[in-house]
Design a protein around this nucleic acid. Structure first.
Length: 240
DNA sequence: GCGACAG
DNA sequence: ATCTTGTCGC
């Protein structure tokens, strides 16, 4: 596992990502998946887009669910300072510390973890899901509501349709490398961008995203984590 | 220099 | 991510 410093500059973070990405393992999930966890973050005291942040703290929630019934088995919540700014491509340096801590507070390690964001569908192959998976040595997949990089055709309009996501020629390293898929999780709605994080394959990412679906756009683990973290944010004072 | 740009 | 109510469509 990595064990690096999180308090570094954006320049150092980018260099670090390139090195860490070499250790990410894209391979089929092994062993039965009995539990799946979802994680999400919210920012305290963020205020309107035009206002300056009042409180620089992030709240992260991890939810553990039974992979068959999708029943909630446990939830964990953490609140901690977040110093790193949001920079496209460096999201993990802003959220991973909180996410890792929340997952660590769950009563048991999940067989699969779903993160809000990219896995290896990233300019340097180290999106949030890949970084967290590497750090915790867990199987992870990234489920994002929009694309960070790469090119793809529009998937069919029906639930279950998906197209390949390949890196742009501009992304250093692999030109046209297959890194994920754009999946229609619900007929007629905007598709999700999924990619493996660590110790999972692209097929696993697509399969579990659809398998955890409940007729709504977001898969249940992610959806539940989002609802829980939103409630937690309001309870702690969204605008101190 | 000009676009693109997870949450 | 964040602010915010009602409203249009299946």
């Amino acid at each position: 596992m990595p064990d690096h410093d999180w308090d570094i500059s954006p320049q150092e973070a980018m260099a670090l990502q390139a090195r860490l990405a070499e250790r990410v393992r894209i391979e089929p999930l092994r062993g039965p998946v009995r539990t799946v966890a979802g994680v999400d973050c919210a920012y305290l005291g963020a205020g309107p887009p035009w206002a300056q942040p009042t409180d620089r703290r992030v709240v992260a929630v991890a939810v553990l669910l039974d992979a068959d019934s999708m029943a909630t088995l446990a939830t964990a919540c953490v609140v901690r300072p977040s110093a790193f700014p949001y920079v496209p491509g460096l999201l993990s340096f802003r959220e991973a510390p909180a996410v890792i801590e929340a997952v660590g507070k769950l009563p048991e390690r999940p067989d699969l973890l779903m993160c809000d964001g990219q896995g290896i569908a990233h300019p340097r192959r180290l999106g949030l899901a890949a970084h967290v998976g590497l750090w915790c040595d867990l199987s992870t997949i990234g489920v994002a509501k929009s694309r960070l990089c790469g090119r793809h055709r529009a998937p069919g309009r029906r639930r279950g349709c998906r197209t390949q996501l390949r890196l742009d020629d501009a992304d250093a390293g692999a030109r046209g490398q297959l890194v994920g898929a754009v999946v229609r999780t619900r007929t007629g709605v905007k598709p999700l961008v999924v990619s493996p994080g660590h110790r999972a394959s692209i097929d696993d990412a697509v399969r579990w995203t659809l398998r955890c679906g409940r007729g709504v756009r977001l898969p249940e683990p992610t959806r539940r984590a989002h609802h829980h973290v939103s409630r937690e944010k309001r309870r702690r004072g969204g605008q101190p």
